[in-house]
Amino acid sequence: MATKLDEIRVAAQRVAASHGLDVVDVELAGPAKERVLRVFLEKNAEGRARLRAEIAAGLEGLPERLVEGKLSVEQLSGVTHEDCAEFSRDFGVLLDVEDLVPGDEFTLEASSPGLDRKLTKPEEFQRFKGCLVKVQTFEPVRNNRHWRGRLLAGSGTNIALDLAATQQNSKSRKAGVNTVEIALDNVEKAELIPEI
């Protein structure tokens, strides 16, 4: 099944690229007759740059928090309902033609990754530097597996969190440090914390 999911991800990226989008993640979940194929999309780097230019030009109709600077372009995927509908239409045809999803019955869902998006790739940790994140590790770091803080840096092999940026749980407070460094290969799960 993992191989099939990789093939689906590659096909999804091909279709997404033709619409100026990037695939953030692909999930295939549920029992055989109720399977859901979820594709999380965002504007590609060019699309995000265009959104920055629209903000700088003062264009009307942009999200208020984005214009006010309370939300960064990097946090906002920039994907519209129309983007998802066009992608779904084209990708659905490709899935049927290439018979990429095993079995006959599944539901295709396309959406943005949301403000609390998962971070999985080293370049995502670099891109979202300065954002609030919560991280769960495989192995404890300073006797704790759950951390919350502002992402200071991502070196490719490690990330650093500023713990003073958020309220910590009791284990984190007992660690008695303001920053923590975590190896990327020890990160079980990481996601952004929305700042609204």
Rank of each mutant, 00 (worst) to 15 (best):
M1I: 02
M1S: 09
M1Y: 13
A2Y: 13
A2F: 12
T3W: 12
L5G: 03
D6F: 12
I8Y: 11
V10M: 10
V10N: 10
A11K: 09
A12N: 06
A12F: 03
A12E: 07
A12Q: 04
Q13M: 12
R14A: 14
A16F: 01
D25V: 03
V26W: 02
L28V: 05
P31A: 05
P31K: 01
A32M: 08
E34L: 00
E34Q: 01
E34A: 01
R35P: 01
L37P: 09
E42Q: 12
E42V: 04
K43R: 14
K43L: 15
N44K: 03
G47A: 09
R50T: 05
L51W: 00
L51V: 01
A53S: 11
E54W: 12
I55M: 09
A56C: 07
A57N: 10
L59A: 11
L59G: 03
E60M: 04
L62T: 06
E64A: 15
L66C: 10
V67H: 03
E68K: 15
V73I: 14
V73S: 14
V73K: 13
E74N: 11
Q75D: 11
Q75A: 13
L76M: 13
L76T: 05
L76R: 00
L76C: 06
S77M: 06
G78N: 08
V79T: 15
H81A: 14
E82P: 03
E82Y: 07
A85Y: 10
E86Q: 12
F91P: 06
F91R: 05
V93A: 15
V93C: 06
V93G: 07
L95G: 06
L95H: 12
E98C: 03
E98V: 03
E105S: 07
L108R: 04
A110D: 05
A110Q: 02
S112R: 00
S112Y: 02
P113C: 08
D116G: 09
R117S: 10
K118H: 01
T120C: 07
P122H: 00
E124N: 10
E124S: 09
F125G: 09
Q126K: 15
F128A: 11
K134I: 04
F138G: 02
E139H: 10
P140L: 08
R142D: 14
N144S: 12
R145M: 07
H146G: 04
R148I: 00
S155D: 15
S155P: 12
I159T: 05
I159W: 00
A160M: 13
L163N: 13
L163Q: 13
Q167L: 11
S170E: 14
S170M: 05
K171L: 15
R173T: 08
A175P: 05
T179S: 08
V180M: 14
V180K: 12
V180L: 14
E181N: 07
I182W: 02
A183G: 14
N186K: 08
V187E: 01
K189E: 13
A190Q: 07
L192W: 06
I193A: 12
P194L: 13
E195P: 10
I196P: 15
